[in-house]
Amino acid sequence: MPYVGAVRSVKVRVPAKINLALHVGAARADGYHQLSTVFHAIDMYDEITATATHDGAINVEVVDVQGQPMPHVPVDRTNLAVRAAAVLRDRLDEPDLGVHLHIRKTIPVAGGMAGGSADAAGALLACNDVWRGALSRDELDALAATLGSDVPFLLHGGNALGAGRGELITPVLSRSTFHWVLGVYAEGMSTPAVYAEFDRLAGGRGVNTPDEPRDVLAALGSGDPDALAVALRNDLAPAALSLRPELLRGIEAAGPAPALAAVISGSGPTTVFLVPDAESAELLALDLRTQAVFDDVLIARGPVPGARVVG
Rank of each mutant, 00 (worst) to 15 (best):
R13F: 00
I18F: 11
N19G: 11
L22C: 13
G25C: 11
H33F: 14
A41F: 12
E47G: 00
I48D: 10
I48C: 10
T51W: 09
G56Q: 09
V62N: 05
M70P: 03
P71I: 06
D76C: 07
D76P: 09
N79T: 11
A84P: 09
A86Y: 05
D90L: 13
R104V: 15
V109T: 04
G112M: 10
G112Y: 01
A118W: 01
L124C: 03
C127A: 04
L147V: 04
H156E: 15
L182W: 05
G188H: 03
M189T: 09
Y195D: 11
Y195M: 06
D199R: 06
R200F: 05
G203F: 05
R205G: 02
P210M: 13
P213L: 09
G223T: 11
D224K: 05
A229L: 01
L232E: 03
N234H: 07
L236K: 07
A237Y: 01
A240W: 04
L243H: 04
P245H: 08
R249N: 11
A257P: 01
I264Y: 02
G268Y: 12
T270I: 05
T271N: 03
L274Q: 01
D277R: 00
A278S: 11
E279W: 00
A281F: 06
L283T: 11
L284G: 03
A285H: 06
L286A: 15
D287Y: 04
L288M: 09
V293E: 08
V293I: 15
F294D: 09
F294W: 10
I299G: 00
V304W: 15
